[in-house]
Design a protein around this nucleic acid. Structure first.
Length: 216
DNA sequence: CTCCTGCTAG
DNA sequence: CTAGCGGGAG
């Protein structure tokens, strides 16, 4: 059993798999839309809905907000949960609009309360809030999605069962830059798609036999 | 805890 | 045919 820190894990993943370029999107609005579409859905289904919305609106905030609810729902449909996700897209973009789409201004205004503010938006829960902090507001946070929970559990970290316990236990090592934190999440998910789906796959991976050391 | 929804890998 | 997705709300 070899021990490694989160930062060492990040570099190991990067060496083995290469840059992921996460979050793959051409604009912040597309990232917001994608972050909501992906909720409990496969990437292929989410991508269809993202493309639908892009074709209809070019990811223009006002164009999306101007869509009648039923039209937006039709575009979202392939990603599933179309009513909730349509509301979620609307609530987040409407909130951005109220702040003149000034993302830096939002960060300055809310500072350390930003996460709590995001959680108030309909359709934004723990994970999506962290995804937005990481890819929209460029803050180096750890996103504990299902793959991260599975990976950390495989690496011997206990108490990964629910988000709050996890957030209390796992925070990124200080040395992570925002870009590294963004890549880290992408790498964990790309790793997860390959090695954390069926059983026995992890044992066959390049991370088998490692223990993750979490700093207190 | 249950429900929300579409899609596909197995 | 069902299990399970890069979750969230009530």
């Amino acid at each position: 059993m070899q021990e490694m820190t989160q930062y060492e894990l990040f570099h190991r993943l990067l060496e083995e798999m290469g840059e992921t370029g996460w979050w793959p999107a051409e604009s912040k609005v597309e990232i917001v839309v994608g972050a909501i579409m992906i909720q409990n859905t496969t990437a292929a289904n989410a991508e269809r809905a993202v493309m639908n919305i892009g074709q209809a609106t070019q990811f223009d905030t006002q164009a999306i907000l101007d869509l009648p609810r039923e039209e937006l729902e039709v575009l979202v449909r392939p990603a599933g949960f179309y009513k909730n996700k349509s509301k979620a897209v609307h609530s987040v973009l409407h909130w951005f609009n109220e702040h003149d789409n000034d993302l830096r201004g939002i960060v300055r205004k809310y500072e350390s309360h930003l996460r709590q503010e995001l959680l108030k938006l309909h359709g934004v829960g723990d994970e999506t809030a962290d995804v937005l902090l990481l890819y929209i507001f460029d803050q180096p946070v750890f996103v504990s999605d299902k793959y991260a929970q599975k990976l950390y559990t495989e690496l011997g970290v206990t108490g990964m069962d629910n988000y709050k316990a996890m957030r209390k236990k796992v925070s990124l090592d200080e040395q992570f830059t925002t870009w590294e934190a963004q890549e880290f999440h992408g790498l964990i998910d790309e790793f997860g798609k390959i090695y954390l789906r069926g059983k026995g796959n992890f044992e066959a991976s390049f991370l088998a036999g490692y223990q993750l050391k979490i700093e207190e």
